[in-house]
């Protein structure tokens, strides 16, 4: 039974020159519950747009993005916000931590907009899990980049998401931190029973996954360019 199933998903943008350009054209894609999948994609391949479509951050021109029982592609914006708050965890390459908020508050805000609401116990436990028990009241700028990404991981998983999306999560980290962050993401997803969809162009990251797919195989736009 697939957790995420996508069909005939299309998204195009109007370029500054006025020409309409298709960025994403995915006829079919699915991800099973608990499955960890890495997508290989270069920058500019539309992978961020693809993840944004899955998370409901962007709306598709057409097609469907079924997450559990809901179709992200047809829901109202309000419903997409709810679905994202409750079912999706997002890990960014640039972490996107809120600078004015402590680590604990960042994690709390990761679960504040879902049905469960903010649970300080759960937030503390998540930060302890990622090894930041001593940094609850610290602010992102007081942490190393490796620690910042761990806060982001704790935040992404705080709301018990069914699906975790990770966009080049190790792109801003050095080798050692990248390896640790990746392991942490995979372990915490496993512990929480979440599916993981990760996109990266880094061979070392991709090599750590049992299942790797080329994004160009999924996104028809890239296939056409290649051929």
């Amino acid at each position: 039974m697939s957790l995420l199933s996508i069909s005939a998903l299309r998204k195009s943008f109007v370029s500054p020159e006025g020409a309409r350009k298709t960025i994403v054209d995915v006829p079919q894609f699915s991800l099973a519950a608990g499955q960890h999948l890495a997508l290989r994609g270069e920058s500019g391949s539309g992978k961020t747009t693809f993840l944004h479509l899955v998370a409901g951050i962007l709306t598709a021109d057409s097609g469907s993005v079924q997450i559990g029982d809901s179709d992200m592609a047809v829901l109202s914006e309000h419903a997409r916000d709810r679905l994202r708050a409750e079912s999706v965890g997002y890990i960014f390459q640039t972490f996107n931590l809120l600078q004015g908020y402590s680590c604990l508050e960042n994690v709390l805000l990761g679960m504040a907009f879902g049905a469960g609401g903010a649970d300080p116990g759960r937030a503390t436990a998540m930060l302890e899990r990622v090894g930041l028990a001593q940094r609850l009241r610290h602010y992102p700028r007081q942490l190393s980049t490796g620690q910042q990404q761990r806060v982001a991981v704790a935040r992404a998983l705080a709301n018990h998401p069914k699906l975790v999306l990770a966009d080049e999560p190790t792109g801003n980290l050095d080798r050692k931190n990248a390896r640790e962050a990746l392991a942490l993401i995979r372990e915490t997803c496993r512990e929480n029973g979440a599916s993981l969809l990760l996109v990266s162009h880094d061979p070392e990251v991709l090599g750590a996954f049992e299942e790797v797919q080329d994004f160009s195989e999924i996104n028809r736009v890239l296939k056409e360019v290649a051929s």
């Binding site: 309000h78 994202r84 805000l109 907009f113």
Partner: peptide, 10 residues
């Protein structure tokens, strides 16, 4: 934008 990504409504 970050808060919106976390699910906060407009």
């Amino acid at each position: 934008a970050i808060l919106r990504a976390l699910g906060a409504g407009r």
